[in-house]
């Protein structure tokens, strides 16, 4: 353990790392220590660890988790010192004692989109956005975390794996097994998170990959060659039941608290055809963020009780 930090208690364990809470001795600042297991893998340092370090070394933004320090301890374990973020958006959504007002949702969406815009303008796809990975600082700021699945955009002809993003937040192009996709996959995930914040329950909870297709298209309509040219050539596009697109009134009924521009933004983020989906810039400039009510100041947002 480095003398600059103390390691206090274990808070979690994943496939490639153990997370501890600790303090930076010099400043007394709370920190999280991600201890990466270097010796346990058949193929050396895990890809997720490499990705996480690579992108956090590059990205510095107030809505992205900060990589404070990196060190190897006596046992040659690699330790990532990350800023301490005590809660996440999933905890807030699930805490039924908390009252969430539309201004709070706007504030969380704004901070998420700002962080994501920073990733995308630097050519980085997150590929695992979900409420669980949107951490919240003690001051109420949302910070995008867990870059273990992230990757840079790369060349246009490069094949990417479609087995990314947690199922409920997976865009239709990924469900169809597309090997060429764009930052629009992250926008879809943010759109689903937006819906989840309004409903306070997961919007499209598929039981398995096949069910996810059904649940998604029941809610938003089945894509066809008319609204998404070329979709029928995607690998998993076969034997689909064609569901109609929901009418505006159906959406209003499903999201009774949403304003018209909130619905517009959500529909823009959940366009089935990724080419028609809004990008981060268009989302951030959307009328939803300038209409009343103003987004809540981060420090006044509801916090985990």
């Amino acid at each position: 353990m480095s003398t600059a930090y103390t390691k206090e208690k274990k808070v979690g364990e994943g496939t490639y790392a153990v997370v501890y809470l600790g303090k930076q001795i010099a400043t007394g600042r709370d920190i999280a220590i991600k201890e990466i297991k270097t010796g346990t893998f058949k193929d050396g340092l895990d890809m997720s660890a490499i990705r996480e370090m690579k992108y956090l070394q590059e990205l510095k933004h107030q809505n992205i988790i900060e990589l404070v320090d990196v060190f190897a301890d006596k046992e040659k374990n690699l330790n990532l010192i990350l800023e301490f973020l005590p809660s996440d958006l999933e905890m807030i959504i699930n805490d039924k004692k908390l009252m969430i007002v539309p201004a709070d949702i706007k504030s969380w969406m704004l901070m998420t989109l700002r962080g994501l815009h920073h990733c995308h303008r630097n050519g980085i796809l997150h590929r695992d956005l979900k409420p669980n990975n949107l951490l919240i600082s003690p001051e109420g700021c949302v910070k995008i975390a867990d870059f273990g699945l992230a990757r840079s955009l790369g060349m246009p002809n490069e094949k990417l794996t479609s087995n990314v993003v947690t199922r409920w937040y997976r865009g239709p192009e990924l469900l169809f097994g597309a090997q060429h996709y764009s930052p629009a996959v992250d926008i879809w995930a943010v759109g689903i998170i937006f819906a989840e914040l309004m409903l306070r329950t997961p919007y499209l909870p598929g039981k398995d990959d096949a069910d996810q297709l059904v649940v998604t298209f029941q809610a938003l309509g089945t894509p066809t060659e008319e609204n998404w040219p070329g979709v029928s050539h995607l690998p998993n596009y076969n034997n689909l039941t064609v569901y109609p697109e929901p009418s505006r009134q159906e959406l209003r009924n499903r999201f009774p608290a949403a304003t018209e521009s909130a619905l517009d933004l959500m529909c823009g983020m959940l366009a089935l055809n990724p080419n028609n989906r809004l990008n981060t810039e268009a989302c951030l400039l959307h009328g939803y963020f300038t209409e009343s009510p103003e987004p809540t100041e981060p420090e006044h947002l509801p916090k985990k009780s």
Binding site: M1, S2, T3, A4, D69, V70, F71, A72, D73, K74
Partner: peptide
């Protein structure tokens, strides 16, 4: 060299 202590990496 860092066997008894730790090696910190700065960027």
């Amino acid at each position: 060299v860092g066997k008894t202590g730790s090696v910190r990496f700065l960027y």
